[in-house]
Amino acid sequence: MALRWLIYGAYGYSGKLIAHQAKRRGYHPILAGRNEASLEPVARHLEFEYRSFSLDNIDTLKSQLSDVDLVLNCAGPFSKTAAPLIQACIDTKTHYLDITGEIDVFEYAHSKHQAAKNAGIVLCPGVGFDVIPTDCVAARLNAQMPEATRLKLGFDSGSRMSRGTAKTSIERLGRGGAARVNGQIVDVPHAWHSQWIDFGNGKKCAMTIPWGDVSTAYYTTDIPNIEVYIPASPRLVKKMRRMNWFRFVFNWKWVQRKLKQKLESQPAGPEEKERKDNPTYVWGEISDDRGNTKELRVKVKNGYSLTAEGAVELAVHTLSQKHTGGFYTPSRLYGAKLLDQFTIQ
């Protein structure tokens, strides 16, 4: 098995976690990114080869990928990095994975299914916490109720967001939420729906969010109506709904810039102890038109720890197994049994 793979964005918070996880498992990926000054110390510490290049020129990009079998993209926002890397991977017949949670990126990757199939490569975005555990829960619930027409997913964690995740969330604020309705992804208001949910640690008020499963769970299950929830106090739900009246201001570039600048003084992400002390509770509910419902709850590792382990596992799996080319979700690529690696009893 030739493990010739490259991690792009290896000096970001999640990128570094993934690179260290690869080292622990005895692999030696090439580290890459735009900023050599940030990249070189990481590569030197891990004793990995590194390459510094931007994504601006497709010919340069293809030359950098010509001798690798797989790219794992960890450089967000993925709305900026996924398209050029996916196109270069198709052109060079290089497998593409990433850790995005961005709905538009999932949809873009899915639109390249036939091109990836023709090239004989795997396109599998979302090989981190977004969306491994929820995708596997969706697959397991669907196996119990193949005729289901509605799927609700959700998760609860006390862990802080990384700077990168927070910046991506800011980019979405002006558009509101998102849900899958009758097979189509639609923009909906912030906190469009709310309900009380037991994610596995007691009932909490929760609201809908524009999570990646709005896209991916449909390709995993064919269920036409999908919503994703996180805990939110009744006060926060009201606040988010009031924000719908003026959410358009969050599309203004200077507002986006100000909000992102405020994040720069914050830590890159949760430290190891915080990750260990804050597991994630994942919940799913499936239903059919006759009113039958089934629920599933699992407790998994902290989202950022899961991202590091899951991304490496799926990279190795993709390189070591024969797959028909095309677009995949994590559970379609590996099987829902992938969830068992991260479950906490």
Rank of each mutant, 00 (worst) to 15 (best):
K62Y: 09
F78T: 07
I86D: 05
S52Y: 07
C124E: 01
I132T: 01
A109Q: 07
K93H: 15
N73H: 12
T149C: 13
L85G: 00
R44W: 10
A115W: 02
N118D: 14
N118Q: 12
S54D: 13
P133R: 03
T100D: 09
K167M: 05
P146W: 13
P146H: 13
D98A: 08
M161N: 12
I58P: 05
V42T: 10
M161Q: 13
H113W: 07
F53I: 02
L65M: 10
A166S: 10
T134N: 13
E40M: 10
S162D: 08
F106Q: 06
F129T: 09
C124H: 01
L151H: 07
I121P: 03
N118A: 14
R160G: 09
I132Q: 00
P41D: 11
K112M: 15
E147V: 09
D67E: 14
L46A: 11
V71M: 02
F48C: 10
Y96N: 00
Y50P: 01
I99A: 03
F129K: 04
L65S: 04
A143K: 15
Y108C: 09
C89N: 11
S66L: 06
L61A: 04
L123P: 03
R160K: 14
K152C: 07
A43E: 08
T94Q: 07
E147F: 10
K80I: 12
G101T: 10
